Amino acid sequence: MANLNHMDKHFETLDDFLGTHFIYTYDNGWEYEWYAKNDHTVDYRIHGGMVAGRWVTDQEAHINLLTAGIYKIAWTEPTGTDVALDFVPNEHKLNGTIFFPKWVQDHPEITVTYQNEHIDLMEESREKYETYPKMVVPEFANITYIGDAGQNNDQVIAAEPYEGMTDDIRNGKFYDENYRMIKR
């Protein structure tokens, strides 16, 4: 078992952040897994909350270094959901604000899938159902896992979430020493 959890990693530059894989839990109990794939793309899996089971790869995002070791990431999903994350990884914290359109709040099950295979459905639902009022979820989170996956690693977020997956990752049972998924 490879110990890939680098909670002691020090972040200073944008390059320190890119290629990093995180697991974090919001104060409301929602658990997320998130990967800074490169300087303009993120991948993520959702393990808790109203859209648990949803996963996304190659989401275009704005990824910026605000000051040494503090990062701002923002994007709009095909669902119309807007996300803004402020990572402070040296303190194992982040603040996230998710702006869910009314339709996602009313029909979250539509989004609980591998989004990349259902972009048309996301866009269709965004047009078909109501957008407002948006459900705004501002939360602090604690980072429980920091992995050095390297940039553009398509193995990081490459399988649908399952119960206990984040524990498997934290316990070194999901990726090998080269940050490739271990065959099950």
Rank of each mutant, 00 (worst) to 15 (best):
T97E: 07
Y162E: 00
Y132T: 03
R170A: 03
Y44K: 02
E123Y: 11
G164L: 11
A84L: 10
T97C: 14
F100R: 09
T41V: 14
A74Q: 07
F99R: 15
G147V: 12
P78S: 10
H47P: 05
H10S: 13
I98A: 11
E130C: 02
D39R: 11
A52R: 13
H118Q: 12
V136M: 12
I23P: 01
P108I: 09
W30R: 05
I70Y: 08
A52D: 02
A141L: 02
A68R: 01
Y175Q: 02
L85M: 12
H6S: 05
V51L: 06
Q151I: 14
D154Y: 06
I70N: 11
F22T: 00
E127M: 10
L121W: 04
G164A: 09
H92Y: 07
D167G: 08
T113G: 00
D16R: 03
V56Q: 05
T166D: 04
V136Y: 05
G147D: 08
E139P: 01
I119S: 03
A61V: 03
D15Q: 13
E109S: 08
V56D: 00
D27A: 06
I23A: 03
I182T: 13
N152F: 12
A2H: 01
K93F: 08
D39T: 12
R184L: 08
F17E: 03
L18T: 07
D148F: 05
E123H: 11
G80I: 06
Y162A: 00
F11Y: 14
K93I: 02
D43F: 06
M7P: 03
E139M: 13
E124Y: 15
G48R: 08
H47T: 08
D120E: 14
H6K: 05
V104D: 10
W30Y: 09
Y145C: 10
